[in-house]
Structures are given as C-alpha cells and as structure tokens.
Amino acid sequence: MAAKKKSDSAKLPGDAELRRELLHSMLLQRRFEEKVGEAYALGKIGGFCHLYIGQEAVSTGVLSMLRPDDYVITTYRDHGQALARGMTPRAIMAELFGRIDGCSRGKGGSMHLFDRNLNFLGGHGIVGGHVPVAAGVGFAIKYRGGDQVIVCFMGESVVNTGAFHEALNMAALWKLPCIFIIENNKYGMGTAVERAAAIQDLSRRADSYDGMDGEHVDGQDVFAVRDAMERALEISRRESKPVLLEIRTYRYMGHSMSDAVSGTYRTKAELDEYLKRDPINLLKARMMDAGDLTDADVAQMEQEIKAVVQDSWDFADASPEPPLEALYEDVLVDTTS
C-alpha cells in the first residue's frame, strides 16, 4: 500500500512541498474571494468587482514559474493573480475596502491592484488596453539587455480588439520577451466566445505573426499550465520572443457582482458540467491519490487560510480611510530627471 502511494506520487510533477504550495496558493485565492463576495454583499466593497473563482490554476500555474524580477500585468479580474504573485491578502483586502493601507492606497480599488515591489504592473480596466503596455515592458527589457519576461494576462474577448493585434504584431516584429496569456473562460460578460470571435482556436492567432508560437492549454490542470509556461519561458527568456498561450478555463461566478451565476447567457447544466473539473478539487484528488495529502492536511490548510483571510478583513476594517488631502496627491509628481 505504502509502496503504491509512493510510486503514484512520483508520477506527479514537482516535489510534495511544491505541490502543497500550489494547492495552498489556489485555495487561498478561492477562500479570499469567497470572503470578498461576503464583504461586497455587506457594502464593505463597492464599485465593479470581478471574481476569479474557477480560474485559479491559471494564475498559480503561470506565476509559480516566474522569477521575482519578471513583470506581470493583467486586467480588472486581478485578485487571484495578485495573490499568486505574492501580494498580501491584507494589502488587497484593504484596497478593496478603499483604505489607506491598500496596495494602491485606496485609489485604485478592485480593478487596479498595483505593487511595484513585486513588479505587479496593475490591473487595467479597458479591455485590450494593457496589451500594448505589456509590449512596452518587453521593449524596455530588450532595451536594457535584460533576460526578464513580461506575462500579460487577458480575457478571451481581448483577441477581438485592435490593441491585441497591434501589440502582438510589434512584439513579434521586434522579438520582445512577452508571454501573452489568454484566459479563455468562454464568456466576455454575457457574450459567448463563439458569438464574438471569428476563430475558435484562439491560440492560432499566433499564426498571424512569423516566429510566434501559440498553444492551447487545459487551464483546470495546474501542472499542464506549468508545463506550458515552462515551454513558453524557454522561448521567451532564452530567445527573446513572444509566445501566445490560450489557457482554457471557466469562471464559476457571474461576470461581476451584479451578474447572476447562470440563467441568462449560460445554463445551470453547463455550469454544473464545468464544476466537475474544479481546478482545486482536481489537484486535491490527485494529491490524495498519490498519498501526498490527507483529509487532515486539507482541514489544517483550510483552517490556516481561513484565519489569514479573516485577518485580512480585520486589517482592512481597521485601516483608516485615505485622508481628504490624498484626493489631490499623485495626480502628478513634482520631480524632473
């Protein structure tokens, strides 16, 4: 029995320690966002707020492969990636509460999480707008002769924007170290991808640019995401070239807090089907199968995460609102070079 477990475990990628970290990262995102949902319902959080629940294997799989000096840029659906990049639950929750200890000092909110120390270049609210910005970061890396990469997350709707084409064209033309990641969760708000894109294998968009590799990946399997990232990094970091990954996933919640989970543009039956491949359950099951993890381990991890998430809430709640003087701060800097 013990021997069997050991050999199964050896089949899973990485070591047991790493696998636990991956599970922890995904579970933290899930529990954190469930708490965000609660806080939103209580009016502690306002404005637009987009949950990432269901997509955690993408953020964790991608970002666990990066170096600290690499860069990350993303959309308004940014809580999961911020956590997976190492931002503290406290800094994020305080930002969502609009408090001074938030990662953007309460000026950005849910859609605009930034952390300069983590090279986390923000959540951006204009669909497609941040993709050329990512190309610019790639340009700067090349300009300075560094070997970092920039990872740019985007929803699948972005492939229909002009900004997407303009950015990928320049990245391929100038051989910029950009890894463009399409998180294909099948919907842009209520519009299914088939109703919006005149191509269904989005990874094939890479074929429009000589020298750009593209592949599609199972986004519910954190190991598959990591494998794809390993190949992407090999190309992007070693050869200074852009790569396009279409990572297929699914969001389990509505588009934003005002959107019903199912009923209008997607059926309950479809949702249930995708829930069977919950990325966290998949990973847990494989680890348990392999003897990596027991129910008691999971319970302990849950317990610990619950405390961390509660602590982030308490911290955010106690953090002061930004003082009114802050209104006029950070419009411009008063320095020159």
Partner: peptide, 27 residues
C-alpha cells in the same frame, strides 16, 4: 534601439511608450 520606426499602429506604439515608462525608460 533609440530611434524606432514603428508600423502604422498608433494605439500600439503609444502603449509601448506607456509600458516602457512604467519600468523606467523615458519614451
């Protein structure tokens, strides 16, 4: 590298400027 001809892609290269400025260049 310092005098860069672009395609006709205003949205794109303006964004490249923004990204480069974010990480310390002066476009």
């Amino acid at each position: 590298m310092r005098v860069v001809d672009t395609p006709i892609t205003e949205l794109g290269f303006a964004g490249v400027g923004v990204g480069a400025a974010m990480v310390g260049l002066r476009p």
